[in-house]
């Protein structure tokens, strides 16, 4: 039977691909749920921590903490440090590509000289391929980690920033909005500015009642400002980086889940189409054979 065998083979191969994408979809869905829960649960902490620093940075005398001051001995005001958070694995559609595009546009638009700290394999690969200057690479763990694991990253960033090498430090990651919507964002974490509340970033804790609060007040520190800030500021930075990694995780798994769902759906459709074509062809062959037999019989009479 000409042709039918070929179609049969294709159906079989698509079906087995579908099995794989469906399995990946299931796995991603489980990971996604975990990552989403973790992200949403810790958002309050990082938002509140960020509010503290925004509240503080405009009100407090910079002399109390070195990170509130501009580091001296600047080499190049266009030089910035970028922490790029990507995924370890592929098969997520445009997840990493989108992030890289946003990053590229940002760097080009401001004519920045960027140096990178990469978290996640995919980002590192792209940076290496485009011959960017990577000053450090931190492995990204496949499961959600504790905030303790962020300490080395944040410590390194702080000491690099204090050495005066960079004008500012930004985080580049994918913000988790919902399962079907993730957004690449660029967030400045150093120096602290209170105009830093990005408008495009949805805040979970209400931003509005921020404004209704009295603006002129001063904090009392116990025991002393420098002692409190010495612990508080690194903690706040850590929480921002930690949150960015969680957001990126949740986004990654959500994006992959959706991608795999699309692939599974497409495979189902393709199998349906091919089965239809196969049946048509088979029927055509049968009809052809029948007519041949009939024609043969007529010829014999």
């Amino acid at each position: 039977m000409a042709g039918t065998l070929e179609i049969k083979r294709r159906i079989k191969s698509i079906k087995s691909t579908k099995k794989i994408t469906r399995a990946m979809q299931m796995v991603s869905a489980v990971k996604m749920r975990k990552a989403q829960v973790a992200t949403l649960a810790s958002r309050s902490y990082s938002d509140l921590a960020w509010q503290i620093i925004s509240n503080l940075s405009s009100k407090i005398d910079p002399k109390y903490h070195k990170l509130l001051q501009k580091p001296e001995s600047k080499i190049d005001p266009k030089k910035i440090g970028i922490i790029l958070i990507t995924s370890n694995r592929g098969l997520i559609g445009g997840f990493n590509a989108n992030l890289n595009n946003v990053l590229k546009k940002y760097v080009e638009a401001h004519e920045l000289v960027a140096e990178f700290v990469s978290v996640g394999k995919k980002g590192r690969e792209v940076l290496a391929r485009t011959k960017q200057n990577i000053i450090a690479d931190f492995p990204k763990h496949d499961k959600t980690v504790g905030i303790k694991e962020i300490e080395p990253i944040s410590e390194m960033i702080v000491s690099e920033y204090l050495s005066g090498k960079y004008e500012k430090i930004v985080l580049v990651y994918t913000h988790f909005v919902s399962t079907i919507n993730q957004k690449p964002v660029i967030k400045q974490i150093l120096p602290f500015t209170n105009t830093n509340h990005q408008k495009d970033l949805p805040m979970t804790t209400s931003d509005e009642h921020d404004k209704s609060r009295p603006l002129h007040f001063e904090y009392t520190f116990e025991p002393t400002p420098d002692k409190v800030l010495e612990h508080l500021i690194p903690r706040i930075l850590e929480s921002q980086i930690y949150q960015a990694i969680l957001e990126s995780d949740a986004s990654e798994h959500s994006a992959r889940m959706i991608m795999m769902k699309n692939a599974t759906d497409a495979a189902t459709e393709l199998v349906d189409d091919l089965t239809f074509a196969y049946n048509q062809l088979r029927q055509a062959n049968i009809t052809k054979e029948l007519s041949e037999i009939t024609a043969g019989r007529i010829a014999l009479e």
Partner: peptide
């Protein structure tokens, strides 16, 4: 600095 109790209308404070 020791144990503190916060009641309404406390002054703005940050403490470890």
């Amino acid at each position: 600095m020791g144990q503190i109790t916060v009641l309404p209308n406390h002054i703005p404070l940050i403490a470890s």
